[in-house]
Design a protein around this nucleic acid. Structure first.
Length: 831
RNA sequence: GCCGGAGUGGCGGAAUAGGUAGACGCACAGGACUUAAAAUCCUGCGAAUUGUAAGAUUCGUGCCGGUUCGAUUCCGGCCUCCGGCACCA
């Protein structure tokens, strides 16, 4: 054994050994309980960054830990390989996206192999391979069959820089999620997935996601944005047509003083036919259409409106109400029409003030009086109804239901639930994605590609420079095809799918990645799914995690899977920062993982990442932290090296039966068991590897202090030390696999530590023989003493009172009471 | 504006059921070993007051208040930071 730890040699040695002996390859085994650990697969951008490293290290610790508990571990890795960067890089460097992607996969894979993350590389998948995207296309066809995929002309988000449409989820503050360019609106015919049909179930089933971070659930809830209310029909004056509105406040119906339509509302044309205000309205609509998408929805732009000269009838009291157009009414939500209640809605209030429209109070607060002349803001809380006919005097919250019922009876209203969630736009006008398997025939119209003809291969020879048109259009051999129905000339769909479609089902494919007759094998799926522990960045809280949940539910409804939620437990790790900011190229604060591995080794890097703080919190990368981690491993190495003689002789004994132990040995034995307990709980329940490592450090420090007398060594003391050292190495094994494996073998073990079951602690060993009692006076610490664990409470009290310092403080004072917490503390309350 | 989360030494962080605040580590200072350096080991390390010293006293977990024998922890009210949503009717 070497006197100092040569990580280079040790890490290489065990990597080779594990690979050669196929340690991490798994098969389904119905006799063993399974555990599926998954880290979000990366986009192969080339170099893995520290964020990736953190993600995979956490996953690897979990996988190795669970393995040591006897689980059959599925821990796979693959590549989210379609996507824009490949295409952009290709355009820039004159290299084909597939070549660029494959090179990057190779680079990233070799780093992951260097890190010896315990992946079963036999199960590697890449979404850009035809044997994978064949099944992505199959998924599309199933959704199409189910009526969950449809094409429609719609105003969509368009990124003028990426030259591509974006899903709502990919628009962040009005800007493109990828390049930050301001998104514009475009009308296009596009494919959508009907995720809105699952809005309520996606919401309801969050109840079952008990082991997901609350943060993520909240974000999804906000995104789905359910609101309850009513749909109310307003009759257009002089017509038999009604315009519906959605409102969450039917209780304010008597306070409606004007009516609003979105400027692009389709009914506007119709009602304007015979209006004297035609010209003004026309101009107004043109002006609004020039407003940028961001200003329009940001809430900051000025409210602008235009009177139409038309009126609707309020169904509750027959009042005539003027119809206006307003830029703050959005066509995309509710019905694109709003009943305006300026007294009780801030936006309507501002609008009414600007255009001098009447404000009528119909809800009065309970404790004060507001008046329409003096109010500075709308009153939007609950109160007592006034000016509301037969409903006067009711509390506004209670009247919600009463009014809806009344409207239902009159035939002018319905209960309605609205969601903010929009259908998922999946068409992309780019090359590097899975082709949408659809054919357009002049005779038969839209015809899905028959399943037997899958995959629709992505042609190699394509001019993929962006022209605002799908690049596939440039390959006529691809575009021109024959109709599978009638055999006549037809054209293929030239858009590809959003890459998030590919990543919405990859976790299923890992269960049976090689099967070529079906997307996944039902039996394997039944065994492995759901994913027991999913780990990734919080940036996917809405996008990927919502889409995957939707896919799983759709597949469940079609009978392909027998579970409704794909990820049982989710962990979202924090970012790796340097200098207080997330590492990024633009900030120039990138730390290259490869360089760190060379300088300090993989295992030290793992320790540093896990020790820096709780993994869900952003961590600060410091070189000093790296040195500390490295120092710690060397310290453990020396500790074991100094005591290597312990392992040369002696057979295993029952720990409990050990007699004649020195006090020090007893203490360290107890500490060892406490440490097992602490580390197990921290890793299992809390994922707090930082405190787990600090507990191991404490044990190491204690072990250093245990100086066994040179001559006349107590054999049992030696045995206790040996056990402690073993435990240290075993507890470290999931965190520092190479390091622990080396020490384990040096200790004389033949089998790999990977197969050694996780250590267990003995309750009996945890108890301390002596307890430290803290003495307080009025809650302030005034003294301490130790007693044997068997000492009774009366004696403890007596002893506390007899401490000289305590005596001093209490003489002449009245003792009000004495509080005693068994085995812990005495608090003397004096006056 | 609404919804989450967080605020503890010089720094990262600990205190998992209301019971010794600051574990563990980093940085720093002093010492040992060394010709020297590195490495390693030992000691100290929240602030203030006081004492030759061991020590003692007070303050201290964003701020203000409350509950309690006792509050980083529970309650009420604020402030700041981070994240999400946002003219969503």
């Amino acid at each position: 054994m070497k006197e100092s730890y040569n990580f280079n040699e040790v890490e290489k040695k065990w990597q080779k050994y594990w690979e050669k002996n196929k340690f991490f390859e798994v098969e389904m085994d119905s006799k063993k309980p399974k555990y599926y650990v998954l880290e979000m697969f990366p986009y192969p951008s080339g170099e893995p960054h520290m964020g990736h490293v953190k993600n995979y290290v956490i996953g690897d610790v979990v996988a190795r830990y669970k393995h040591s508990q006897g689980y059959n571990i599925l821990h796979p890795m693959g590549w989210d390989a379609f996507g824009l960067p490949a295409e952009n890089a290709a355009i820039k460097n004159q290299i084909h996206p597939s070549v660029w992607t494959k090179e990057n996969i190779q680079k990233m894979k070799s780093t992951l192999i260097d890190m010896s993350i315990s992946y079963d590389w036999n199960r590697e998948i890449a979404t850009c391979n035809p044997d994978y995207y064949k099944w992505t296309q199959w998924m599309f066809l199933q959704l199409y069959k189910k009526g969950l995929a449809y094409k429609k002309k719609a105003v969509v988000n368009w990124c003028p820089s990426c030259n591509v449409v974006l899903a709502n989820e990919q628009v962040i503050n009005g800007k493109c999620w990828r390049c930050d360019t301001e998104v514009i609106k475009k009308e296009l015919s596009q494919w959508f997935f009907k995720i809105t049909e699952y809005a309520q179930r996606l919401l309801d089933d969050m109840e079952s996601l008990e082991e997901w971070p609350e943060k993520v659930l909240t974000m999804q809830r906000n995104w789905i944005g359910r609101s309850e209310g009513a749909r109310i029909e307003f009759l257009i004056k002089g017509s038999d047509k009604t315009i519906p509105v959605f409102t969450t406040r039917p209780d304010t119906l008597y306070g409606v003083t004007y009516f609003l339509l979105a400027p692009e509302h389709p009914l506007v044309e119709e009602i304007m036919k015979d209006s004297p205000y035609k010209a003004e309205v026309q101009k107004y609509r043109e002006d609004v259409s020039k407003e940028s998408a961001i200003d329009r929805v940001s809430g900051t732009s000025e409210k602008k409106g235009c009177f139409t000269g038309k009126y609707v009838i309020n169904p509750i009291n027959g009042e005539e109400i003027p119809i206006w157009l307003a830029n703050y009414v959005l066509m995309g939500y509710g019905t694109g029409a709003v009943m305006a209640v300026p007294a009780h809605d801030q936006r309507d209030f501002e609008f009414a003030k600007k255009y001098n429209l009447p404000i009528r109070i119909v809800i009065q607060p309970k404790d004060k009086k507001v008046s329409s002349d003096t109010m500075k803001n709308a009153f939007d809380e609950e109160g007592i109804m006034i000016n509301s006919g037969q409903f006067n005097g009711l509390s506004s919250s209670k009247s919600l239901d009463v009014i809806i019922d009344y409207l239902i009876k009159k035939g002018s209203g319905e209960r309605e639930v609205n969601y903010r969630l929009r259908d998922w736009l999946i068409s992309r006008q780019r090359y590097w994605g899975a082709p949408i398997p659809m054919i357009y025939c002049e005779n038969c119209g839209m015809v899905p590609v028959p399943e037997k003809d899958l995959p629709v291969l992505l042609p190699e020879n394509v001019d993929f420079k962006p022209k605002g048109m799908s690049p596939l259009e440039s390959n006529k051999e691809f575009v021109n095809t024959i109709c599978p129905k009638c055999g006549r000339k037809a054209k293929r769909e030239i858009d590809t799918m959003d890459t998030f479609v590919c990543s919405s089902w990859y976790y299923l494919r890992f269960c049976s990645p090689k099967t070529d007759t079906e997307p996944f094998n039902a039996e394997e799926l039944k065994y492995w799914m759901p994913v027991d522990q999913y780990i990734g960045g919080v940036e996917h809280a809405i996008l990927h995690l919502l889409y995957s949940r939707f896919f799983t539910k759709a597949l469940y409804d079609m009978g392909y899977v027998n579970f409704e939620e794909p990820f049982k437990r989710l962990f979202t790790q924090g970012m790796v920062c340097k200098g207080g900011a997330a590492m990024s190229k633009s900030k120039g604060n990138i730390v290259n993982p490869g360089e760190i591995f060379t300088k300090f080794g993989i295992d030290a890097t793992r320790v540093m990442m896990l020790f820096a703080g709780p993994p869900e919190v952003d961590m600060e990368w410091t070189d000093k932290g790296m040195e500390g981690a490295s120092r710690f491993l060397n310290r453990v190495w020396r500790l074991i090296y100094n005591n290597i003689d312990c392992f040369k002789k002696g057979e295993d004994k029952e720990e409990v039966s050990l007699k004649n132990l020195s006090i020090e040995a007893k203490k360290i034995r107890q500490k060892t068991h406490q440490t097992i307990k602490k580390v197990t709980e921290d890793v299992e329940k809390r994922f707090h590897f930082n405190t787990a490592i600090s507990a191991i450090m404490e044990l190491v420090n204690e072990a250093y202090k245990l100086e066994l007398p040179e001559e006349g060594k107590n054999e049992n003391d030696v045995f206790v030390l040996k056990k402690t050292l073993e435990i240290i190495v075993r507890l470290l094994a999931p965190i520092t696999p190479h390091f622990s494996e080396e020490l384990w073998q040096e200790m004389g073990n033949k089998e790999s530590i990977y197969f050694k079951p996780w250590p267990e602690y003995d309750e009996k060993m945890l108890e301390e023989e002596e307890k430290l009692i803290v003495v307080q006076i009025n809650g302030k610490l005034r003294g301490k003493f130790t007693v044997s664990a068997s000492c009774n409470n009366e004696k403890i009290k007596e002893k506390a009172l007899s401490l000289s310092r305590i005596k001093e403080k209490i003489t002449g004072k009245e003792i009000v009471k004495i509080i005693l917490v068994s085995g812990k503390l005495v608090n003397i309350v004096i006056k």
